[in-house]
């Protein structure tokens, strides 16, 4: 992204790390004066992606593992947000995970498995790359209200 604001941070692969990352995103929204009505899909998606990395990819490594984040905001009409997440866990392409069946009833519905599907439906673009022994995920969304 060209003009705009970019934050880089590194958080431990723990719940506290997820909290810190979501708080950083929240600060960026507040400073840029964007409404929660258009930012929540990005908040939800970052939570899903980090929960996946922390609870699966880097599971059990806790404080010793770091997740690198880059949060970018580009003003405009509409403004645009890009989130990059990198970790050195085992290779995992979330985009290759099979989509859950969202038509099953209460009894048949497995608990979990929905996170990545939500990210796919909430973001405009998602790219995964395995590079230099690390997982790199890039998420982009134009900050407009969800059309639904």
């Amino acid at each position: 992204m060209s003009a705009g604001e970019t934050r880089r941070l590194s958080v431990p692969a723990t719940d506290a790390g997820i909290k810190a990352a979501l708080a950083a995103l929240e600060r960026l929204w507040a400073e840029q004066g964007v409404s929660r009505a258009v930012t929540w899909p990005v908040d939800v998606s970052l939570d899903e992606v980090l929960a996946n990395v922390v609870h699966h990819g880097l599971e059990g490594r806790g404080e010793s593992a770091q997740v690198e984040l880059e949060l970018s905001f580009e003003p405009g009409d509409p403004p645009r947000c890009e989130v990059r997440v990198a970790d050195d866990g085992p290779e995992f392409d979330p985009l290759s995970a099979p989509a859950p069946d969202t038509t099953l009833g209460v009894d048949e519905r497995p608990i979990g498995g929905l996170g990545i599907e939500l990210v796919k439906r909430l973001m405009d673009e998602i790219q995964y790359e395995r590079r230099d022994g690390r997982n790199h995920l890039r998420l982009v969304r134009r900050l407009v209200a969800m059309e639904h």
Binding site: R36, A37, W40, P41, V44, D47, E48, A51, V106, D107, R109, I111, G112, L114, G115, L118, A145, M146
Partner: peptide, 30 residues
């Protein structure tokens, strides 16, 4: 996020009619 949906689903499973009832309300657009 999906972690919250998981909790709602868990409650729904334990509150199935006719012995139980679970109703959600006050849903904002997000």
């Amino acid at each position: 996020s999906s972690a919250g949906l998981r909790v709602l689903l868990l409650a729904a499973k334990r509150l199935k009619p006719p012995q139980g009832a679970l109703v959600l309300c006050g849903l904002g657009p997000g």
